[in-house]
């Protein structure tokens, strides 16, 4: 279980997170929605330790994440980055098997390559993609490779940062379905940040709305349309009228 308690983070005078409280239960797929610049990525990076919150606590299974052993902590996570964040200098299979080629999870090269090809197949890519370089792939293929890398070491927790940004609707649908299938299949805990409502409906068990540095509403995805929360209602409808200012 991931638990955030009264988490604050500011950049100079700008308060991005202003007392975030959120609980993500084991095996649950939580999607955090909110407008651009509302601190969704910052929240995710604070959980991973890529940024340090100014105050408040983040715990994983009851342990304060700032005090755990970093390698063991990070070994439990997989992450799909918004732009893929694939390493340009490495072929696709080495990107996917990065964790399996070094560190505590290191495996022999041939075995790592086999696993990488299997994961590529799992995300709908053929083995001949394995020896290409990221620059030779389309945006959708890069997302798939990023997804394959995120699941390569079979993590307990997977984070997805804007998984469908920059993709056409069909490819977005394919990626959403893949994420849902993989999360269910692996029994992983998932945390996704997005402002794509089609992703929310496919991927999530629960939804949290982040605005003004706080979680404004959280609940099961089935309750989202009738939440009665003005922020959620405005966000879903995409209306310029409501408590969320259109010009930020």
């Amino acid at each position: 279980m991931i638990e955030l308690t009264n988490v604050h983070k500011a950049f100079g005078p700008k308060r991005v997170l202003d007392g975030v409280n959120l609980t993500i239960n084991r095996g649950e797929s939580m999607v955090i929605i909110g407008g651009s610049g509302t601190g969704k990525s910052v929240l995710l990076k604070c959980v991973l330790g890529l940024m340090v919150q100014d105050s408040g606590t983040i715990t994983l299974d009851g342990e304060d994440t700032s005090k755990v052993e970093r390698d063991a902590f990070l070994a439990r996570f997989g992450m799909l980055f918004q732009g893929g964040a694939l390493f340009d200098s490495l072929p696709v299979w080495q990107n996917v098997a990065f964790r399996l080629l070094r560190g505590s999870l290191a495996k022999p090269k041939e075995e790592a390559r086999e696993i990488a090809i299997e994961k590529l197949r799992r995300v709908g890519l053929t083995p001949d993609v394995a020896d290409l370089f990221p620059a030779e792939l389309s945006g959708g293929m890069q997302k798939r490779v990023g997804l394959a890398r995120a699941i390569a070491a079979e993590p307990e927790i997977i984070f997805f940062d804007e998984p469908t940004t920059g993709l056409d609707p069909i490819m977005s649908g394919v990626i959403n379905d893949l994420i849902r299938e993989i999360v269910v299949e692996m029994g992983a805990t998932a945390m996704t940040i997005t402002h794509d409502m089609s992703s929310v409906r496919v991927i999530s068990d629960k939804v949290a709305m982040l605005h003004g540095g706080k979680i404004q509403w959280t609940g099961p995805v089935g309750d989202m349309d009738n939440s009665g929360d003005p922020y959620v209602t405005q966000f879903i409808s995409g209306s310029a009228e409501g408590p969320i200012e259109a010009v930020r």
Partner: peptide, 16 residues
């Protein structure tokens, strides 16, 4: 460029 494209963050999440 690696920093701008989040590859440095990716390294960290891959325990490197």
């Amino acid at each position: 460029t690696m920093k701008v494209t989040e590859q440095i963050d990716a390294l960290v999440t891959l325990s490197t």
